[in-house]
């Protein structure tokens, strides 16, 4: 099979970009989408043109590095998989496929199809953790976690941090990502002490990064390679409201060291 690719090419953040059209060489339907790009890139390189820059790493759908909006859909036509697990058999011979980078103000473009998603890390820095020093943990079975909570936390924890939710949302909102992180820790007993501080800090950082807000369109859920549910956004909204109502903690009165 062969396909025609319309690919976004942009040398760097500050130079204008444009779509360029490439005819693929003969492809095997069992190729992954990224392997197809590899093949196209080899051809480009052999012709002396610059290969298409795209992000990828594990190629088994877990590292969250690959991105791409394929024919208007982040991670391509299938549900519940990342671009690296999209196979050419999902397309027809002669198809024209439009390939674009994830677009969001919070994801500045690096080159061609590569964007910078460090904003997601900064949200994690703001509070995506349980403060436990190495060596200070109690025996693991001292903390009982109801199976249904553990399972639900796991549903949220599956998030691979790819940012497809942002790419899909018409508002470029990172709510699903943040909600998954907040819910994962907020559902576990270990996460309770910092639960409200965490949700407040992470949501505020999300706003500061310039992501849009949630209008509950459901696109994020539809493209999420791990099919993370909108339920978690509601859970986060609930937690954030509780955090607002509780307000900032009372400042500690000064007490000198003993």
């Amino acid at each position: 099979m062969k396909v025609t690719l319309k690919v976004w090419r942009q040398k760097s953040r500050n130079t204008p970009g444009e779509f360029k059209t490439y005819e693929s060489p003969a492809l095997n339907p069992n190729m992954s989408f990224l392997e197809m790009l590899d093949v196209v890139n080899e051809e480009l390189a052999n012709r002396g043109e610059e290969p298409i820059a795209f992000d990828h790493d594990c190629r088994e759908g877990i590292c969250g590095t690959c991105s791409l909006v394929i024919d208007g859909k982040p991670h391509g036509p299938h549900q519940g998989v990342a671009t690296c697990q999209t196979y050419m058999r999902s397309f027809k011979n002669g198809d024209e496929i439009v390939v674009e980078p994830f677009r969001a103000r919070a994801f500045p473009l690096v080159k061609d199809l590569v964007v910078d998603r460090k904003a997601l890390d900064r949200i994690q820095h703001a509070g995506g953790f349980i403060s436990v020093r190495t060596g200070s943990a109690p025996d693991a079975n001292n903390i009982l976690v109801p199976k249904e909570n553990a399972d639900l936390a796991m549903d949220a924890a599956q998030c691979i941090g790819c940012g497809a939710c942002v790419a899909a949302c018409k508002n470029a909102s990172a709510m699903l990502f943040v909600a998954a992180k907040v819910s994962h820790l907020g559902l576990l007993p270990q996460g309770q002490p910092e639960r409200h501080r965490r949700v407040k800090a992470m949501v505020d950082q999300m706003d500061a990064e310039g992501f849009g807000g949630c209008t509950v369109t459901g696109s994020c859920e539809a493209v999420c390679p791990k099919e993370i549910s909108l339920d978690f956004i509601a859970r986060m909204n609930r937690d954030y409201a509780a955090a607002l109502i509780r307000g900032e903690p009372k400042p500690i009165a000064g007490s000198g060291a003993g």
Binding site: V69, A168, K170, G218, S219
Partner: peptide, 9 residues
């Protein structure tokens, strides 16, 4: 986007 995403919503 050149092809605005609409699926799922």
């Amino acid at each position: 986007y050149a092809k605005p995403p609409t699926y799922g919503s």
